[in-house]
Design a protein around this nucleic acid. Structure first.
Lengths: 202, 202, 202, 202
DNA sequence: GATGAATGAGCTTTCATTCAT
DNA sequence: AATGAATGAAAGCTCATTCAT
């Protein structure tokens, strides 16, 4: 009986809260979403939120952490599959576009508040996000260096290029997910754009 | 007497409010900044804010509009100076980096809330921002097409590439201005990165 | 613990709020009464007002609706008891005077803002008040027609006379309850006045 | 040049303010009308209001006093013309209906805030309104007594009946002017109603 | 006389969080 | 574990009035 909520059957209250919060944070933003609405959407009492997650921020932390781990892990898996550094980067970019489509709600939650609320000093987020961000930078840097060793990527500063790629993907992700204007699908063109900048000329 | 404020002399109250609001919005975000603090920082009574700008949003609108106009105009001027399409794009990117250094506070105000609060339907911002955004897209698209005609830019979809460039600059701007982590200066590398993707091979 | 308030024991917080609001609205008017004072008078926190009634208007709506229902119902009961139409009207008028003495505070709340704030288009009140008002008109009209059939009331336009009676009772109610001047008790004289206008001469 | 206002030519600023305020007070109520809107509607600066009338209440006082004097005087003139007491009362009632049609805006201003704001102890209104109210009561009382002497009015308590008549006219005036519901014209019926109650049977 | 920028007290409402049940 | 009534600090905004020009 405890597993029932007014809204979703077969889903624990904790999961119902996470689903409701993800949807609402994505659509209206973290700070614009009152806990009362999360509770209502999840079909639980407001107190239950604070029972499972100590604070409102705790809910956000849970969502963001979960998503970031899946993202970084996905990139890593793509990299392992690739035959060389350039292919690994391409695989990473492909995965990125896949991911922001598949888990668009969670990505939006993240993008909305990064790097602001999520990077403020007295927040549990800072460490969560920072760790994964630098992990990602390290990953891309390594892949570029690998590409340079195996001859697939030309001679460019590896870490700086990693920052460019990450910044670009971040910016394009925002543009795609959050702009309420009609923007063409540029997946293939982004791949080409990066390929041309990275690939060693033969 | 109008020219005096407790904090800044030789500045009208309206200007003092704009300066204080820009600084606070940049550092703490629009919604996290109470009007009471803006008033205090500007050395005026809280009511004075609402006398000059009808609402708190009115202050944000003023700052953002002013900044966006200067940005778009700056890009246009660079484009006119250039000898060909590729140089115009490079000039635009250079100006972009200049601009976000020179007017970092206002840019931060913008980046913090774009495209969220700034793009919500019932907001005065939406039209302000949308107009300038598409103006910029058109500008970049034209420059790319120009470059393709003059032989400086290779055969790529012009409008989609414009979206890529704008999305990338936006993402990199965020990374640079707002990430509280130490990130190397990648100005030159971004130029190279774009150059390599755009330039026609000889 | 819910039953305790600093001011009134044995009364729920919601009831304490209603009692305090009724008294204050009656004495100073709806708009001149800040929610902070209602809270203080009720011995609850200000937030509690908005927990139980969504808005300040919600408190007024509750009071007015409750009172109007009791009023209309009281008139109806008097009418049923009467032996003929004229007696029913007299019974209604008697009840009216009783009611404005018994529930003077709530009646004052109503009279203060009728038909202004209570009749504005975008208000929840309009429908509440309009419904009861026309119910009352219909009731009096029916009673007059009954009286004309049973021979107790002379030949006068039924509905228009209903409007006269209601308007008169309303005006006299205001005069009695709200005028801070000493006005003699005219209960008996009003009954005579109406009786003389309505009764069929034999 | 001083006589010009943006809105009305040939009208002094003071008159323009009174006209604008009367219209706004009638439609939205005294407290719901900001001085800024009066100034705008009158085509003058906000400060000008306080130049001519010391306070916002001063504007209301001027309007109400002016109107009440005209009302009482009108009733008196009708009374003087009449051939006997009963006719005088009828003349007064006729004048009343005339007046609330002719000067409906000013009457509405009055009705909206009487007897509340207009009767509060620390207000200049109290004396203004009280004086005229009792003057009217005295007038009606005298007319009734006159009618009793000349045989046109039957034996009823004169002063109490005066209160009934005034209260009734007040209530009916409210009903007519301020109820946003369609209410039939009951002018003739009110006259009949009163006539029947007052006239001596032969 | 006329102006309008400036004021600041006061308003209603929101909301994350607590805690007795 | 789950509830939801209660809280109170803080927010954005309104507005009659003042006063230097």
């Amino acid at each position: 009986m405890e597993q029932e909520s007014g809204e979703r059957t077969g889903v624990s209250r904790k999961e119902a809260i996470l689903m409701a919060a993800t949807e609402l944070f994505a659509q209206r933003g973290y700070s614009a979403t009152p806990t009362s609405e999360i509770a209502q959407a999840a079909g639980v009492a407001e107190g239950t939120l604070f029972h499972h997650f100590k604070t409102k921020e705790g809910i956000l932390a849970y969502i963001v952490k979960d998503m970031l781990d899946a993202y970084v892990q996905g990139i890593e898996i793509q990299a392992e599959k690739a035959s060389n550094g350039l292919e690994a980067i391409k695989g990473g970019i492909c995965f990125h576009f896949h991911f922001i489509n598949e888990r668009s709600r969670e990505v939006m939650v993240m993008l909305r508040d990064f790097p602001f609320h999520l990077m403020e000093a007295d927040t549990p987020f800072r460490e969560i996000v920072t760790t994964r961000f630098f992990h990602l930078v390290k990953l891309f840097t390594d892949l570029i260096e690998t590409g340079q060793k195996d001859g697939s990527i030309r001679d460019i500063p590896a870490e700086k290029t990693a920052f460019i790629l990450i910044g670009m993907l971040n910016g394009l992700g925002r543009q795609r997910l959050m702009c309420p204007l009609k923007i063409p699908d540029i997946y293939q063109e982004v791949l080409d754009f990066c390929y041309n900048s990275l690939a060693k000329r033969v």
